[in-house]
């Protein structure tokens, strides 16, 4: 029983890690507290729903089209809202409020078009592999494998590609990047697109398993933020570790108490970290007071 919960926790943790990494790609480099990121996660499976269930496209084509449209949504947010605000040197609070506004608009647009009820992407029961008592469904394998593939791919590119070097440079010192003639606003487009790929993939993988409604984004975003803080802001491998910690912790909570207390425990952990180790597990010590 414990082992089964542990496996479920690791699979959820992989999704948290993926989504948190997408959030960190934007937050670490631009310091935009991208609350509307919740919408990116939520809207991707709705695009799959449109192509796959309504128009009858092949699932892989639907998924790819959905990711492309998700990237478009993310870029629209950046170009219409974040970029003008950043050019005006707006404070973090102003950008966060605008992001909340974006989230409210997008959630309710989706609710208007698709309705408030839960939608499922496919009706067949997912096959599973059994190891004695343990059951692992194919959807879970897909979630774990898909997340791991994207995460390792990104870490690899971060280390070795020019894109990765620019990303780390943006994280460390954005004004200096401009000094060295990097068009930071153009580069931000790539970052927003990449974060949309991460959130969109996570959203589609989870929705393929359990379906979605217009409000799934916020709880996932909150978990991703906690993963980021626990791991530590400013390091790209940190949210990955944080995501797995939360995933496993939540399974233990479900095992020991009940699923209802899951969020309470997650956020108590957040508060503990904010009070005693605000730089997270891997972050560098900085003045936060």
């Amino acid at each position: 029983m414990l082992l089964q919960l542990l496996i479920n926790g690791i699979v959820n943790g992989a999704i948290y890690a993926l989504v948190a990494l997408g959030f960190a790609i934007v937050y670490n480099t631009t310091r935009i507290f991208h609350i509307a990121y919740a919408v990116i996660y939520m809207v991707a499976p709705y695009f799959v729903y449109t192509f796959f269930d309504k128009l009858g496209f092949n699932i892989w084509i639907s998924a790819i089209l959905a990711i492309i449209l998700t990237i478009v949504v993310s870029l629209v947010m950046e170009l219409i809202v974040y970029k003008p605000l950043s050019k005006k040197n707006s404070s973090g609070n102003v950008i966060m409020i605008s992001s909340i506004g974006l989230m409210i608009i997008a959630i309710n647009l989706v609710a208007l078009f698709y309705g408030n009820d839960t939608k499922i992407l496919h009706r067949d029961i997912s096959d599973s592999i059994r190891f004695g008592q343990l059951i692992i469904t194919y959807s879970q394998l897909l979630q774990f494998g898909g997340s791991l593939l994207l995460i390792t791919g990104f870490i690899f590119f971060l280390k070795f590609s020019k894109f990765g070097i620019k990303t780390r440079a943006m994280r460390d010192d954005e004004p200096l990047c401009r000094v060295f003639a990097l068009d930071t606003f153009r580069f931000r487009n790539y970052l927003f697109a990449l974060s949309a790929v991460f959130a969109g993939t996570g959203g589609i993988l989870v929705a393929w398993d359990v379906g979605m409604d217009p409000y799934v984004g916020m709880p996932m975003l909150l978990n991703a933020i906690v993963a980021l803080i626990i791991g530590g802001v400013g390091k790209f491998h940190a949210p990955i570790v944080g995501g797995f910690i939360i995933g496993i912790l939540q399974s233990v909570v479900i095992w020991k108490f009940s699923a209802n207390w899951m969020e309470g425990v997650t956020f108590t952990l957040l508060i503990l970290f904010l009070v005693f180790r605000p730089q997270g597990l891997f972050g560098e010590k900085q003045r936060l007071v």
């Binding site: 507290f33 973090g92 969020e263 956020f267 904010l274 936060l288």
Partner: peptide, 27 residues
């Protein structure tokens, strides 16, 4: 507890307490 932090961290702390209190009221 939360006012020791600033900017985003303060907002996150208040958000965390909001969710903890809601969970307690609910459960």
């Amino acid at each position: 507890i939360s006012l020791r932090l600033k900017d985003d961290y303060f907002i996150l702390a208040t958000l965390g307490f909001q969710i903890i209190i809601y969970t307690v009221l609910y459960n």
